[in-house]
Every structure is written in structure tokens, then in C-alpha cells.
Design a protein around this nucleic acid. Sequence first.
DNA 1: TTATCTAGGTTCAAATGTCAAACTTAGCAA
DNA 2: TTGCTAAGTTTGACATTTGAACCTAGATAA
Lengths: 155, 155
Amino acid sequence: MSNLAKPNLRRRARVEINECGMAQSAFVFGDKWILLIMREAFYAVVRFEDIQKDLSIPRAILTNRLGRLIDLGIMTKQPYQEAGARVRHSYHLTLKGRKAFKILAAMMEWGDEYLIQNPKMQIVDGTTKSHLRLGLINELGQEVPQKQIALEPKR
Amino acid sequence: MSNLAKPNLRRRARVEINECGMAQSAFVFGDKWILLIMREAFYAVVRFEDIQKDLSIPRAILTNRLGRLIDLGIMTKQPYQEAGARVRHSYHLTLKGRKAFKILAAMMEWGDEYLIQNPKMQIVDGTTKSHLRLGLINELGQEVPQKQIALEPKR
DNA sequence: TTATCTAGGTTCAAATGTCAAACTTAGCAA
DNA sequence: TTGCTAAGTTTGACATTTGAACCTAGATAA
């Protein structure tokens, strides 16, 4: 009772949910199946059956989430035809979807650090094969360490 | 029918869910309330009532998710005491939780680009006030453009 | 011709999760 | 004694998720 922590309980000015990109993103990416389906897409798994088997996702859920991703403009459904088969469909990331890569990359870094024993995959520069990691970069192109960052209202 | 897209349908070797940090992270962060509660934590909102009001989250759900975050080691519950009041509790990110900042930062960038009209908040260097953004950085400390990256098995 | 296979779905009933609103509890103050 | 507040718990209606079975259209096989 004597040495209780004395945190600063002064509350920041409330940042409205609907004016905050972080909060709005939470409504899109705050769903495990959405994230796992996007993982498949980044791993170039594009067919309904393949995604379904990889993830063991209930078929109705996969249909639902692919629909949601298409409505959001994150993925598209494209027809294709293999020799001796009828037209089928495959699912691909749009630019908007590919732009979400850093979200998945950040999850990969964190998961590899805290949830996985020895990770199998890594993010590399495709040309040099140099291993890549995420960093917060200032306007001069220099990385800024975590402890130095702050969340502030725009000027 | 003539000019159907001809995507590469060759499937990558399957990356097992339980050997993939990205997939395992999806089970943690693939929940909108978990993400929104962590947002509150990064915005220094630490009390049950304050979080509940900011997010309009059902109280039972908030209790459940705070418990989950504590079990995961992402947050801790700390006692504190204000003058003329009994001991209360506040919720804080652990190091493990703070290390997830880049996940939220990536969501903020994406959400500010695609979901929000004019964003109110930004990530800055606390000392220089320079605006920060996320980038993929190679071993030389240089940023590598999106189109150049690849996901590969570890050597 | 009839049957079989496959990709990409629907449909179903049971289990689980979410929600808002009401209730609970402990300590403090009037 | 009564009321207030922070931090929950309980309740019962409603929505979502799940696995398993079913459906459908083209292609080929018998």
C-alpha cells in the first residue's frame, strides 16, 4: 500500500474513433480470417480451394470474407482458364491491398519475436536478398528509435 | 473469354500456420476490440471507465479483452491510489505490448491513406517533431521500395 | 447417354460470442 | 444512513461461427 505506482492518469484529449486511421483500420483488420486470407494472398495462394485447405477456414466464412475484401477494394476476383477446364476464378490483392503489406510485416516481426520458436520465412530485398525489417523513418531518411517517438495532433 | 488473365497459379510451398509469426499474430491482433484497447493504451488512456466510454465497448467485453491482453503479457494491471479515494487499477502496456507499436502504426498509415478524410494525429520524433513513417530497411539502414521486396524461406 | 469429378460455392442446426441494460461490490463522503 | 463512483458481473435476446452435408456447372470417362 505504501509504494503503489503513481502513473500519470491525466487523460489525453480523446481522439474520435471516426477521425482516427488507426481505429478505422481496426474495423477492417480486426478479424483473424481477414488477416489470414491476406497472408495467403501475399504468399501467392489465390484459389478458393487452396486458401480453404491452408487455413482450414469454414467455406461459408471464406466466401463471406472474400466478399468483404472485394467490397473494400483490397482484393479482386479474376477469371482464368486452364487447358481442358472451364473458366474459374482467383483472388488477388489490389494496390490498396498490397499497400497493407507493412501491417502484415509488422505482425510477422512481432509474432516471430514473441510467438514462434524459429521462424521459417523472412522479408528480403528481392534483388540483393538482404534481410529487411520495419523501422520508423524521419524526413531525412534516418531511423528513429522507439523510445523517442510520440503521437501528436497535426499542426 | 479470349483475353482472360493468366496469373501464375503455381502455389508456393505451404507455410504452416503454427510456424508463421504472421499467422500467429493474426490470432492475437485479429480482433477489433484488442486493437482498439491497445490504441487507447498508446493514447495513454489507462482506466476501465475511460476506455469504456471512449470506445463504447460493452463492459463485459472490455473485462474479457483486458484479461486476454494480461494473459498474453501485452498489458499489466496496476494498483494506484488518488487522494481521498480507495485503491484502484489502471492498465498499461508492457514492453511486449509497446513492441507492437509498429503494427498499430502501419494500420494508422493505411487508414489515414484509405479510410480517413483528413487525419488529426501523426507519429513524430518526440524531440525534433519530425514526422515519421514506416519503411522496410535493409542491413545497411537504407529503405527498400515496396515492389522490390519478397517473402522467402530462411537460408 | 449416363455417371463421375472438381472448384466454388449454399444451406443447415448447434455452439459460441456479442450486446445493452440492470445489478453488485467496496470504500469514501455527506 | 444514504448516496456516489470505479470496476466489474449477470442476464437474456440476438448475431456469428462452425463442421458437415448438399448443390451446381462444365469437363471428361464408360
